[in-house]
């Protein structure tokens, strides 16, 4: 008798989320575990979004600053470079310059950058604040309004500031990232609170909080895996939004992507090390269930894309 491998099927499905207007991208929509195409449907590939900033990336290590050295002084040029030269399918504009400890740029400054970038590129835009609770609550509603109708992703709404940010994203027709701090129950709770405001759960993206390989990634992995199982096996409607992994930000600040070859020759090439670290972190979190990846280095993006190609071949 021929061996028939057992197949697992689930009653739940992840919501597909489509972003952008002129050029659109969709992620999510699967009814099976990551890359388990032999068990269910995965209608969309994970989407990789290139991260850019409103201010020059002075705190990025040289390895990841270098590919953007000619364009990163201007977010418009930077965004165009990602779209035209790197073939980015999506761009993430992080408004880090609005952080009070950074340049403390105003909401008006942020609106100008967002508008300029939106006018310069066609691919879908993800707009992130500086991860400062009060400042994000002030800046994100303004940029949401300024980008009304462009079907962007706004983020990140957290427990302490979700009300204003979610209300603005809702009024301007955007998608919304809801971030909680590595706790599956709090992640569910935040999604409930946001949907109780009238925000459709099908427009949410869950961020369970990322971490880099070697820096607690197993916690992120476990929370993501359990969220995905809740979505599929328990068909939990508030756990069915797709998940984002904000990879670049966490990877390019750790020792392994910064320590020089002089100091640690046994760690090998700094450039290769950083790129592999970002690619491996992203790949690991895709395996845990992330459908949207925010990344920095073009070579790391290429590696991850090759992996996705092979998995979808």
């Amino acid at each position: 008798m021929a061996f028939t491998p057992p197949k697992e099927s689930f009653r739940g499905r992840v919501y597909p989320v489509t972003i952008g207007t002129e050029v659109q991208e969709t992620f999510g929509g699967e009814n099976t575990l990551p890359f388990h195409r032999f068990e269910g449907e995965i209608p969309h590939r994970p989407l990789i979004s290139y991260e850019i900033q409103d201010v020059p990336p002075q705190d990025w290590p040289e390895v990841v600053r270098e590919p953007y050295s000619d364009v990163s002084d201007d977010p418009v040029k930077w965004a165009q470079f990602c779209q035209e030269s790197l073939g980015a399918k999506s761009i993430t504009l992080r408004l880090i310059g609005t952080h009070p400890d950074q340049k403390n740029l105003s909401a008006e400054d942020a609106v100008k950058v967002v508008t300029d970038v939106l006018n310069a590129v066609k691919v879908p835009l993800i707009i992130l604040g500086s991860n400062h609770i009060e400042k994000d609550a002030e800046v994100l509603p303004k940029v949401a309004e300024a980008s009304k109708g462009r079907n962007c992703v706004i983020g990140k709404a957290q427990e302490a500031n979700y009300k204003t940010i979610a209300a603005a994203a809702m009024a301007s027709g955007h998608k919304l990232i809801a971030m909680s701090e590595l706790d599956i129950n709090l992640s569910k709770q935040l999604n409930i609170l946001i949907t109780q405001m009238g925000f459709e759960k099908e427009r949410l993206i869950t961020d369970p909080m990322c971490s880099a390989l070697g820096y607690g990634i197993e916690y992120t992995y476990s929370v993501m895996e359990r969220i995905r199982l809740a979505a599929l096996a328990q068909a939990d409607p508030v756990m069915q939004p797709p998940m984002v992994a904000d990879v670049g930000m966490y990877v390019w600040k750790i020792k392994e992507t910064q320590a020089s070859e002089q100091d640690l020759p046994e760690w090998g090439s700094l450039r290769e090390r950083g790129i592999l670290w970002e690619a491996l972190t992203a790949t690991t979190l895709m395996l845990a269930g992330a459908e949207l990846l925010i990344m920095r280095h073009p070579d790391a993006v290429s590696l991850v894309n090759t992996f996705i190609d092979e998995m979808f071949a």
Partner: peptide, 12 residues
């Protein structure tokens, strides 16, 4: 353990 706990689980 059939559904995930959240503080608002009764409101879902």
């Amino acid at each position: 353990g059939n559904t995930l706990y959240a503080h608002s689980y009764l409101e879902m």
